[in-house]
Design a protein around this nucleic acid. Sequence first.
DNA 1: CGGCACTAACTATGGACATAGATAGTGGAT
DNA 2: ATCCACTATCTATGTCCATAGTTAGTGCCG
Lengths: 203, 203
Amino acid sequence: MSLRYALLALLTVEPMTGYDLYKEFESSVGHVWHAPDSQIYPELRRMEKDGLLEGEEISWGQRGKKRQYHITEAGVEAFRTWMKGTLDYARVRDPAHLKAAYLEWAEPEAARQQMLAHIRHHTELLQQWHDKVREIEEGGSPMLNRRLAKIPPEQRRKTAAFKKFTYEGLIARAEQEIAWANRGLALIDELYAEPEATDLGKS
Amino acid sequence: MSLRYALLALLTVEPMTGYDLYKEFESSVGHVWHAPDSQIYPELRRMEKDGLLEGEEISWGQRGKKRQYHITEAGVEAFRTWMKGTLDYARVRDPAHLKAAYLEWAEPEAARQQMLAHIRHHTELLQQWHDKVREIEEGGSPMLNRRLAKIPPEQRRKTAAFKKFTYEGLIARAEQEIAWANRGLALIDELYAEPEATDLGKS
DNA sequence: CGGCACTAACTATGGACATAGATAGTGGAT
DNA sequence: ATCCACTATCTATGTCCATAGTTAGTGCCG
């Protein structure tokens, strides 16, 4: 159900086509909520049917057409209602930690690779999110700038602050995951340490 | 696809029925990977068809029956193969952070409630996971104890260590989420602080 | 003018999961 | 003897999502 609200959030700034939204999901919003175009187009249709959006055919070039959606009053209302209510949190389902729980089944080298992959993955995310925070701080985010331009000046501080707050949370999470995986690497080293010293003691 | 491997992981300890596995998912493994019975039963059938498990009808009471599954050689092999390979990480899709990015749309009180709900949720998880770590440390986890009893003594240290490592990662994550939500509460207070001082300056 | 990357939108299929409910036996408590 | 909580299994429906196409127009580059 969150896809719907992610789309509404973007459409509170300006009317957009499905393709625009898809592009925005690939870059900015997609860092928080990913969605493929095959999910976006039908959802927009459904939202129009539910009265949250209104679509309009726009011609493009000679024969080209695109469908631009703008949010309705009901759409804004639905978004506000969603913001008011509390989320229900999904049950834990974490492949990386599931696997970590049984690392004794892997060769030490494979176990290390798991941890390195975890670090690599979260380092990439970290990079993206750091870039995003820098962009916000420097006022270089086109979508955010358009949003800020539409709202009264006294609201702008809040709007930018919450965006930054969000990304900083994701950054902290990624850093935590990296730290965990590093502890994992240390643990693997310790558990599979060359047992010479111990053997000497035993023999 | 991870459900399959979560089930295999449990079945490396001992043969179990679908109901046993469902119960285990509700308590121990469910802290890492949740699954409802309606997903477990058909998956077990599929795994049997794929030769990873073998099921056996067992009578229970007068007329009762249950189906107990034990892992096959192919099942163990599949589990090892999964442990060897690397996971592909799912794209980010995080309702809590999506919502946080647009908190300026909520009344300050509603915004605070979001943060408090986040704290409450992760505090509950934290509690569960802390209990789990204590259980592991004190040797009071029935499933883990049966697992440890089945393996050579020199393997036991690793097995227990990886379980503990896993839960500690989840604990660190939950603590991070709580810290983030607390920063959120502070930010809300700051952004919506009584503006007397500023007004005085302006007037 | 032909190729090519991009814009634009949609369809089809299948897996994973939530939610809800159906069915039936067990075993202990009142 | 009956009720109830629990054990045990399965089905049904719908949403979400990944993956992989299909179709068609645009606009620039060589």
